[in-house]
Nucleic acid binder design. Sequence first.
DNA 1: TCTGGGGTCCTAGGACCC
DNA 2: TCTGGGGTCCTAGGACCC
Length: 415
Amino acid sequence: MEIAAAILHADLDAFYASVEQLLDPSLRGRPVAVGGGVVLAASYEAKAFGVRSGMPGRRARELCPELVFVGGHFREYQRLGDAAIDVLRDFTPLVERISIDEAFADVRGCTHLFGPPAEIAATIRRRVRGELGLAISIGVARTKHLAKIASQVAKPDGLVVVAPDAELDFLHPLPVDLMWGVGPATKARLAELGVTTIGQLAATPGWSLAKLLGPASGEKLAALSWSRDPREIETHRRAQSAGAQSALGRKPAQTHVIRPTLLHLADRICTRLRAKSRPGRTVTVRVRFADLSAVTRSVTLDAPISATLILAETAEALARAILAEHPAERTISLLAISVSHLEEAADLQLELPLGLADEARRPGAKRGIARLSADRAVDAIRRRFGWDAVGYAAAALGPARAVPDAFRELAEKEL
DNA sequence: TCTGGGGTCCTAGGACCC
DNA sequence: TCTGGGGTCCTAGGACCC
């Protein structure tokens, strides 16, 4: 039996910027960037000038003097992104959401209701355009990898269907960096072997790729280049970690900078962990210095934590250890905390009790119950009166946090 | 030009156990 | 005492994705 091309990859075009052009018709056809100090998203008109997300606003204005900066309607992004994904869900429950503006769908089981996959894709595009006013590109193929590449080829505002008997003809002429997992570094290493297309990659011996990229990565890449992709749609993926970071510009590596910053990051992370009852055992801290080089240090605790002050103290100890090992570095440009090894807490108080003599691995754990209770009180007040009603003085961080919290939340994965 | 913030996965070495 | 092998966990770093 023929295996159908029935995996869809749907991707909203230049999503944030397109929403801004939807909300304000005077922006249509003009180069638009969401953000200010840093570009969070750019319209196609802006991308044509070389404007990219993550770019400093000053640089973007140099490249494109006409560029219009808008602050961003983050609630609208969430609403419209959800609405677009819901259109997919009208056809099948087998939807795997990748981010706010992108999802896979498996329509194998619903063609008897809605017609062939290509027709379903066309209907989805028409509905998203008609009901939401947004362009969404879709790739249709037998595998996730191929569907994803097809949607990239389809952009902007297009539909590309890859028939099962035409997969390699479609795939092999394309540049390697269109493949999932091939970024700038891998692209450069492959270029040293003379490999620039997916077809050339497919023709490269497996041992050669394994030597270049490691056994697992080499094997995966080889399989994908021959369109062997075993991945199924996963409708409910849970997060493996939760983190937060803050770029600081250039700040002295001193307690009055480090402590309030780490406390704020810990507050953001632990609020999420407690809300979903997912405490974590491993704490990783990253310190980036003025030259943008970065060092990480982590510790795995005997029991999972979700109390803000315990995370903050653990993180501070790790940050101090990093700085002690790099005494020449007096200036830092970023601090980050990540919590992994997330567990499913039935509910409360896994912060306790402290084992016999392992205080060193459980900094502050003796005060765990009291702290978790205080946190839960703060959580409750915030639920009623808002985030800023109570908590650990974020004002101490100073005025200019580069990225609004509303924007950060859009990127948070469901715990 | 001196680059934001949320994540995932892989690698390699060492510790430790059987 | 010396030797080999497999498995798991931890840590640090890196590449990649949106």
